[in-house]
Amino acid sequence: MEEINYLDFERVDIRVGTVVEAKPFPEARKPAFKLLIDFGPEIGQKKSSAQITVHYTPETLIGRQVLAVVNFPPRQIGPFRSEVLTLGFEDETGAIVLAQPERAVPNGRKIM
């Protein structure tokens, strides 16, 4: 594990947002969904490609709050431009489990 200082961590802008749209992403090399996430009035809605197809369906993602890094540069993933990095953790099989707040919080709040 590489150590970083607290100032490095402060530069990573992690925000909470609500998934407002989720669609299959058949063009992706690995199974994924295209997400549209609402981060509130300051940031707005942003797109994300997320490899979360094992534990989630598009229907179960709508309305779910998620955590995402909003200040990485966008990445082109095939024909899709992913604007934020949705955060999650690998389970024991390597499938991704989303990171999310325990209770609902206003969209756009920054991690503390």
Rank of each mutant, 00 (worst) to 15 (best):
G40V: 08
V66H: 04
V69Y: 05
V54Q: 13
T60R: 13
K47T: 07
S48R: 01
I62D: 04
T53R: 12
G44F: 11
I43S: 12
L61T: 06
Q45M: 15
L36S: 12
Q65F: 04
G63I: 12
N71L: 14
Q45R: 15
V54S: 10
H55R: 09
P58V: 02
R64D: 03
S49W: 02
F39L: 08
T60V: 13
I43Y: 11
V69I: 15
P41K: 08
V70A: 02
S48E: 01
S49I: 12
F39C: 04
Q45H: 12
G44K: 10
E59P: 05
T57N: 12
P58Y: 02
G40T: 08
I52W: 00
G63K: 09
H55D: 05
V70G: 00
E42M: 07
N71K: 09
L67W: 07
D38Y: 04
P58F: 02
G40H: 03
V70E: 00
Q45Y: 05
V70Q: 01
T60G: 06
Q51M: 10
I37E: 00
T53C: 15
G63Q: 08
T60H: 10
N71S: 10
L36V: 12
K46N: 12
T60D: 13
I62L: 15
Y56S: 03
F39S: 02
L67C: 14
I43N: 11
Q51T: 03
P41A: 08
I52D: 00
K47E: 11
S49F: 01
S49N: 10
F39W: 06
L67S: 04
V66W: 02
I37Y: 00
Y56Q: 04
T53L: 08
S49D: 04
A50G: 03
E42V: 09
A50Q: 00
L67D: 01
P41W: 03
H55F: 07
A50T: 02
R64N: 04
Q51G: 14
H55A: 04
T53K: 09
P58C: 06
T57S: 15
N71A: 08
Q51D: 05
I37W: 00
T57I: 13
P41E: 09
G44P: 07
I52V: 13
E59R: 09
K47W: 11
K47S: 14
F39R: 02
S49M: 11
Q45E: 15
V69A: 14
L36K: 13
L67T: 07
Q65R: 05
G44V: 08
S48A: 15
E42S: 14
L36I: 13
D38S: 08
E59L: 10
K46H: 06
I52Q: 00
A68H: 03
I52R: 01
Q65P: 10
G63A: 11
F39Q: 05
S48F: 01
S48H: 02
D38T: 05
P58Q: 09
E42L: 09
T60K: 15
D38Q: 12
I43G: 13
N71M: 14
T60E: 12
P41Y: 11
L36W: 05
L67G: 02
I43C: 13
A68V: 10
I52F: 03
H55M: 04
D38N: 14
E59M: 03
V54R: 11
L61D: 00
I62E: 10
D38F: 01
E59Q: 14
H55T: 06
L61M: 14
A50L: 01
I43L: 15
P58A: 07
Q51R: 10
